[in-house]
């Protein structure tokens, strides 16, 4: 059984896993995405405006 490396798809996969720098790019992308998500989340939380309802005291009274 020969590995069907001549298939373009597998060639792409091969290129993907075996090219110096692609790994870094993938890791960078992953980390970049995470950092961005985290930053955006923090901004999202911080940007919540007081809706005039119950505020700071916690927990909200039920």
């Amino acid at each position: 059984m020969n590995f069907p490396l001549e298939q373009p798809l597998f060639q792409f996969f091969y290129w993907l896993v075996n090219t110096a720098g692609v790994g870094s790019a993938v890791v960078g992308l992953l980390i970049g995405a995470a950092v961005t998500t985290f930053a955006l989340t923090l901004r999202w939380i911080a940007s919540a405006k007081d809706m005039g309802q119950e505020s700071y005291p916690y927990p909200p009274k039920h």
Binding site: N2, F3, L5, E6, Y14, V17
Partner: peptide, 16 residues
Amino acid sequence: GGVAAGSAAALGGLKN
């Protein structure tokens, strides 16, 4: 050159 295609090794397709 392109990646050597069709390695003779049974599973050794990924030749790095």
